[in-house]
Every structure is written in C-alpha cells, then in structure tokens.
C-alpha cells in the first residue's frame, strides 16, 4: 500500500511558540503552475498585538546581552540553517525557484547571517564616537538599540528577504515583529523553526504570515513599535506608513536593496535601527600633553 505523506502545518511564530492565528483564518498561495503551496495563517491585528507584547518583553534581556554573546547566537542561526538546507531547497523549489537559484539563495542566506554575526561586536566601535568639546569633559556618543522594530519583508526572496532585513536588526539588540512575504511564505515558518532551535530567546523574533494591506494600519499606528523596516514594493503603502507613524514618531526605513546583491548587506543596516546616546563626563583634557591618562 502506498504511504500517504504527512503535510506540514504552517503556523505563525510568537514569543518562541508556534500558535495558529487567533482569527482561525487561512489562505492558500499558489505557485506559477497553479499548485497550492500550503494552507497559511492569515494573521489578524490581534496576532500583531500579541507579537508586539512578546517582542517588548523580550527586548530588555536581548538588548542587555553582551555583544559577543549576541554574536555567538546569530552565528548559531547560520549553523542551524545549514543543517536544514534540504528542507529550504524543497520549499524554494516548490515556490518556483530552479535548483540552482534555490541553492544560491540558501548559500547567500547562511553567509549573510555569518557576516552579521561578525558585526555584532564591531559596529559599536565603528559608529560610536568620542566628540571634541571645548570644556573639561569626556564627551562620547554610543549606540543603543531602538526597541521593537516592525519588518514588512520583501515579496521576493522567501528566505534571503527575511535574513537580509531581520538579522541586522537583531544583531543590533532590537527585537522584531515581521510580516513575511504573502505569496512566498513557506520559508518564513521554517526559518522560525531555525530561530527557535538556535538559542535566540523567544520573542526576539516574531514572524506572522498574512496580508500586508490588512496589517499595514496597525504596523503604522502601534504606539509600542519604535521603528519600521519597509521592504515591500508599494510606494503607496510606504506613504501611508509615514503618515500613520506620526503618533509615536516611528523611525521608518525603506529597504530597497536587491537582496541577492552585495549592496544589501552592510553595517549601515544595523545602524539604521540604533539610537545615539551622548554622555558628558567631567574629566581633565584627556588628549592634552599634561594629561595623566
């Protein structure tokens, strides 16, 4: 007798757990040949609300981790992703990539995570400054994570799109609530499984699947989301987000880079979600010839 295959149930990822959407709704995206990919959760605003609560409560602990430790954890994501290569390959091909394209995307994703793992304990030195002041103060500006960052992932690049947007944000100590690509959502939940098994504390990354237009208003107006990374394709949606975000003056960054291109990885994508804190510390002139330092 022929064995029936067991199909995977794609759920969403909130606070380190995999609940179904509270709304009970789903949608079935199709690939180019009209084949249904899977039943995918159509997340509601309440799922977004729950994800923000999870991200907020994870923020303090994640931001306070030593940079070196964050680096180890991000590197661990790459290790786990490597181990799941076959699964991502299958999903990417199901969604319409050729084998060659899929392998390229997976390789690039792993390399990009390792790249940002390296930056975790280095961007501070690059972006922080010691500022010249004309008084007896040691004046320095240091980087601090912005807080909870919303990510609307690119429509193209089911895996590399998530990696390119999410990883620099968490490398900088922020926590993330991400809406995955609506038409290519399979890798998002498998990527969440990678995150869950790679020492990333629950709530640091939360991944929802669903419709961008439906959730846009709440991403924009939510007072507890401190910044947004918009990697979607709609100018109109970006304008809306900019208008909605005035309630708490969210920082909004438009991620336009082509994820398959070198230009889409840089420490500046970490800096985009950092706040600058400047401190004045009374001290004698540390650079002077009479300085005892």
């Amino acid at each position: 007798m022929e064995r029936l295959g067991i199909l995977k149930t794609y759920k969403i990822y909130i606070g380190g757990k995999f609940p179904r959407t509270e709304s009970g709704r789903y949608y079935s995206p199709k690939n180019a040949s009209g084949e249904a990919l899977a039943n995918i959760c159509l997340s509601s605003r309440k799922d977004l609300r729950n994800a923000v609560v999870a991200a907020r409560s994870a923020f303090g602990g994640w931001a306070e981790r030593a940079a070196f430790n964050r680096s180890q954890i991000v590197y661990r994501i790459a290790e786990m992703l490597e181990g799941r290569r076959a699964q991502f390959l299958e999903e990417l091909m199901k969604q319409g990539s050729t084998k060659q394209q899929a392998e390229k995307e997976i390789n690039l994703s792993i390399d990009r995570i390792v790249y940002y793992a390296g930056w975790c304990d280095k961007y501070q030195q690059i972006f922080s400054t010691v500022n010249p002041v004309s008084s007896s103060h040691f004046n320095f500006s240091a980087m601090e994570p912005t807080g909870v960052v919303g990510v609307i992932a690119p429509e193209e690049g089911s895996l590399i799109g998530l990696v390119s947007t999410i990883i620099p944000i968490i490398a900088g100590g922020n926590t993330v609530v991400c809406l995955a690509s609506e038409k290519l959502p399979l890798c998002a939940i498998t990527f969440a499984e990678v995150l869950q098994t790679s020492d990333v504390p629950g709530g640091v990354v939360n991944i929802l699947t669903g419709n961008e237009k439906e959730l846009l208003e709440h991403f924009g107006s939510h007072m507890d989301i401190n910044a947004l990374c918009y990697a979607g394709a709609s100018e109109d949606h970006l304008t809306q987000l900019n208008k909605l975000s005035t309630g708490n003056l969210k920082r909004i960054r438009n991620f336009e880079a082509n994820c398959m291109d070198e230009s889409s990885q840089s420490p500046y994508f970490i800096q985009d979600y950092q706040e600058v804190k400047t401190t004045w510390h009374p001290i004698e002139n540390i650079g002077g010839s009479t300085s005892t330092y």
Binding site: R49, V52, R56, H218, S221, H222, M223, D224, G247, N248
Partner: peptide, 10 residues
C-alpha cells in the same frame, strides 16, 4: 478611543 494599540511608555 484612538484605534491605535498603546505603549506603556506613555
């Protein structure tokens, strides 16, 4: 009242 989810910051 406002339609926007709130933050403990305020």
């Amino acid at each position: 009242q406002t339609g926007a989810y709130q933050s403990g910051d305020y």
